[in-house]
Nucleic acid binder design. Structure first.
Length: 575
RNA sequence: CGGGAUGUAGCGCAGCUUGGUAGCGCACCUCGCUUGGGACGAGGGGGUCGCAGGUUCGAAUCCUGUCAUCCCGACCA
């Protein structure tokens, strides 16, 4: 491609509405352009990158035995009614009506459609296992799209779905996908960590996420997930799923008899602990949440934090938020009590489900709210003074320094960008949608399913996030839009131009993806642009051409070698 | 949805306090000059000042409403 006709517009400055590097650089280097909130045009350079990623994904999926198909982007509500998700998916599901008033939606994911395909097309165990995938635009009406391609509303995704006769088959399909994913990301030049994760709204039991770890110190950190990992063994998990050894309390407390005590204006755990002069670890914190419209009280040790996803999962909920003050008032009224947030406790509360974190079980002589404003119960003990809730679960957010449950070593935290995930769905969809096959024994059985996603556009953005410097993008070779750019320093120097032209033609003849910067720009402009758009190799034809030499620069290392044009061509051909 | 901020040319911004009919840099077009890290000179094109009301002789500027965008929290590939 000749630079003079390449459709690209690089900007001198970063766009003002971009925050993270991948967004800033992709816009500035002319790869993407926002059409509307969370929706981007993929310009020619970007589209080449995306096709590279797609093709790597395709090759590895095909090698893993999966088959590509393409499902519709618009889906009828009926399928979603069948699976039960029409009512629970929420506002991320972009719903619309056709001219006849039929309800439709834009596909945010395709479990329903693929299940309908399987129930029509697969009748016998002999047809199993099978894994079907597609690469397609998805639409999720995200609450807050941000970070450019990292969290758009429309994005390109590879989604695969496996169908097996039994759990053992699913385990195998799952492992095959995990392996394919490792290869895919490695080929894309991305180091990833496979971490345990919550299975969320898509449903199912086991799931893992593939995270691109991003440097904590990096400015404008684009990692949206906290990943906990063990410093000794291989354990790693998303914070919404991570577990750690139950941290024990270091003190017996200082109140040894249960007594309601004046604690004026202690609205927070910190204020209470200061007022009573006790550590927060022997206070039992009570928080009111609203899960799918129902009130839930979570009890947890004062020095720990509730992990909301874990809490929500106790009730199999879809939406969780902390209760507002007016809602707490309502609860108090309904319970015939009168206390404000900060002084509430489990005793005498009505219309609220109570869940205790494992950490509170061990508490002795602790302090807890007693539903009287400006008062707390001190020196409390379970069973004697206050009833231990029946529901005891791990609803605690792990902290750095907690101990690994596998080996006891320290856990650390880092930020990660989720580029892929794999789920064991089981029979969630096949049962709900009555998708069955006839097994060996003649019985009708629901498919055992798995689903596997890769964010194609997000993977490309994550690569930029991970590989750039102050001059611009540094594409990993495998997904770079072009392999090499030839830059003649002066378009008025006939020797330079003819050598550059000659090299360009030779490389083209060998099917090398090459750009010739034939623009009548000054050298600085051309060199800056080459760095900005991030082509892995640059051949500069300049002054040294009088000695028969050109410069061969590797973008990633900034290493410049002065070699002959033929050698430069050989270097590219031998990549 | 809650909290904060911003909408002026393709991009980045000034002008708004104190109303008088829109400006700068980059980009774009023409000519000249220049060619190893985003040159220079001359000339030129492009803007319903987010939108709708209101106040006023007169509104980018003041008032009201509305829409959009961005940042912080609940979502997820």
């Amino acid at each position: 491609m000749r630079m003079s006709s390449l459709f690209v517009q690089t900007l001198r400055e970063f766009p003002s509405d971009a925050e993270v590097m991948s967004h800033k650089l992709l816009v500035r280097a002319g790869y993407i352009r926002k059409l509307t909130n969370g929706v981007y045009n993929y310009l020619p350079l970007m589209w080449r990158v995306l096709k590279k990623v797609e093709n790597i994904v395709r090759e590895e999926m095909d090698k893993a035995g999966a088959q590509e198909l393409l499902m519709p982007f618009v889906q009828p509500s009926e399928l979603w009614q069948e699976s039960g998700r029409w009512d629970v998916y929420g506002k991320e599901l972009m719903r619309l009506k056709d001219r006849h008033g039929r309800e439709m939606c834009l596909g945010p994911t395709h479990e329903e459609v693929i299940t309908s395909i399987a129930r029509e097309g697969i009748r016998s165990y002999k047809q199993l296992p099978v894994n079907l995938y597609q690469i397609q635009s998805k639409f999720r009406d995200e609450i807050r799209p941000r970070f450019g391609l990292l969290r758009g509303r429309e994005f390109i995704m590879k989604d695969a779905y496996s169908f097996d006769v039994d759990e053992a088959g699913l385990d195998k399909s799952y492992e095959i996908m995990a392996e394919a994913y490792r290869k895919i990301f490695e080929r894309c030049g991305l180091e990833t960590k496979m971490v345990q994760s919550d299975s969320g709204a898509i449903g199912g039991s086991v799931s893992h996420e593939f995270m691109v770890l991003v440097n904590e110190e990096a400015e404008n950190n684009a990692g949206e997930n906290d990943v906990f990992y063990c410093t000794n063994c291989g354990y790693s998990a998303n914070s919404n799923h991570a577990v750690s050894v139950l941290p024990s309390v270091q003190t017996e407390g200082k109140y040894f008899e249960a007594k309601i005590t004046e604690t004026p204006n202690t609205h927070s755990i910190e204020e209470l602990s200061q007022f009573l002069n006790i550590p927060s670890s022997i206070i039992c914190k009570a928080l009111i949440y609203v899960i799918d419209g129902k009130y839930v009280m979570a009890l947890i040790r004062g020095d720990k934090t509730v992990e909301e996803t874990k809490l929500m999962n106790v009730f199999g909920g879809n939406e969780i938020r902390i209760a507002r003050n007016d809602e707490i008032e309502e609860i108090m009224q309904n319970s015939g009590l009168n206390a404000i947030a900060g002084f509430i406790g489990p005793e005498g509360i009505k219309g609220v489900e109570i869940v205790a974190d494992e950490t509170v079980k061990e508490l002795k002589n602790f302090v807890i709210g007693c539903n009287q404003t400006d008062k707390h119960l001190v020196g409390a003990n379970w069973g004697k003074d206050i009833k231990l809730p029946e529901r005891i679960f791990d609803i605690r957010l792990v902290e750095e320094g907690d101990k690994c449950t596998q080996c006891g070593a320290d856990l650390k935290v880092t930020k990660g960008i989720e580029v892929g995930n794999i789920f064991k769905l089981g029979t969630k969809y096949s049962k709900a949608m009555n998708a069955t096959f006839t097994d060996k024994d003649g019985q009708e059985k629901p498919f055992i399913m798995g689903c596997y996603g890769i964010g194609i556009s997000r993977t490309a953005a994550a690569a930029v996030e991970r590989h750039h410097d102050e001059n611009g993008i540094i594409w990993p070779l495998a997904i770079a839009p072009y392999t090499v750019i030839i830059v003649p320093v002066s378009d008025q120097d006939e020797t330079q131009m003819s050598i550059a032209e000659d090299m360009y033609k030779k490389l083209l003849a060998d099917n090398v993806e090459v750009i010739l910067d034939d623009r009548s720009e000054r050298a600085g402009v051309k060199l800056k642009d080459a760095d900005l758009i991030g082509i892995p190799y640059r051949i500069t034809v300049g002054k040294t051409i009088k000695d028969g030499l050109v410069e061969f620069k590797t973008r990633a290392t900034n290493v410049v070698e002065t070699i002959s044009p033929d050698e430069a061509i050989q270097r590219i051909l031998s990549l």
